[in-house]
């Protein structure tokens, strides 16, 4: 390699060094790859953007004119005056059901699997594999489960096709997610914290209650919030349970019910009036926007919680 005087070639020393390190050629392959990766990322972001825009634009005729009325009116036969009140109520109860049912159950299971169970035990292994598999079972199958167990077997308690049945079904559906995220949060609790507890004479339950759960709380909460968002957005179990889309002036726990995803599904399929101003497309989009805002709110909360959680864990 001959020595090149920087000044003679009209280049700075840094440029020369760089060109020698990179072999002196322009990195075409690297550029192509980077462009491809950027294209993938931008396409994905673009799809999300177009989707949000489509929902917003279609929802606009209703959401700009009568947002309050839309949220508080009951469902009806006219897209220009229909509301989503029963759907909001149903979705609210479903979210509440998930919170009340799957959180204690999921967190308890996670504590057992992380802190109590012996990991080399066959039954523990079975439970762990089983939970992972349950997390991958399609929602529509949970719908079949809910229809049979809560809609038919336990009809006397749940009232059959009711919002209680829907909430129970969704709680079972998100349980694996709650368990898995809670386990991860509990696993991240420093062992020293537990040992410190034992050292001062606490029992395992006291350590769990006073140290493990509080420390893991933000991580557990992240999973909980994501689970609620998921439960709010699932539609197929609602179809299985027979959520109604006709007329529902009264919202009850054990009577006929509906929820936001069911309304979006049903309204999307209804024909729009010829030449009419506001059609079912608009109503479906407005209901979709309502659901999106709820779900995005929960997801954003989860992202915020997780970031905080990570910072705490890193001791920042």
């Amino acid at each position: 390699m001959s020595l090149i005087t920087p000044g003679a070639a009209g280049k700075t020393a840094a440029e020369v060094t760089r060109s020698q390190l990179t072999g002196g050629k322009r990195d075409t392959a690297g550029l192509v790859l980077l462009v491809l990766l950027l294209l993938c990322t931008l396409t994905t972001l673009l799809i999300l953007g177009v989707l949000l825009q489509e929902v917003l634009v279609d929802a606009w005729p209703i959401m700009s004119e009568r947002p309050g009325d839309f949220l508080t009116s009951t469902i009806g036969s006219d897209p220009a005056t229909t509301g989503v009140w029963p759907g909001l109520y149903g979705s609210f109860i479903i979210g509440l059901g998930v919170l009340v049912l799957s959180v204690p159950l999921g967190v308890a299971a996670a504590i057992y699997l992380e802190d109590y169970a012996r990991h080399d035990h066959k039954i523990t292994q079975l439970i762990l594999v089983n939970i992972r598999n349950l997390a991958g079972v399609p929602a529509v199958i949970y719908g079949v489960l809910g229809l049979t167990i809560f809609g038919t077997w336990l009809k006397g308690i749940t009232g059959g096709s009711s919002v209680i049945s829907a909430a129970l079904t969704m709680a079972v559906l998100v349980l694996p997610v709650v368990i898995i995220t809670s386990m991860e949060a509990i696993r991240a609790v420093p062992q020293g914290l537990r040992e410190g507890g034992y050292g001062v004479g606490s029992s395992r339950w006291e350590v769990t209650r006073d140290h493990v759960i509080p420390y893991a709380a933000p991580g557990i909460l992240t999973g909980v919030v994501l689970s609620i968002a998921r439960a709010l957005g699932e539609a197929s179990p609602l179809i299985m349970l027979g959520a109604i889309t006709g007329l529902l002036p009264e919202t009850t726990l054990t009577g006929p019910f509906t929820a936001l995803p069911m309304l979006i599904y049903n309204w999307s399929g209804r024909p729009d009036p010829v030449g009419g101003d506001i059609g079912w497309t608009n109503a479906a989009a407005a209901a979709g926007l309502t659901l999106l805002i709820l779900v995005i709110f929960f997801n954003a909360a989860a992202i915020y919680l997780r970031n905080r959680f990570e910072r705490t864990r890193l001791g920042v």
Binding site: G68, S77, G279
Partner: peptide
Amino acid sequence: TEAPAATEAPAATEPMTSEP
């Protein structure tokens, strides 16, 4: 202002002009 609409059928006074 919207509370009555929650218990009533959608906008009673409007004629239903855009039936499917």
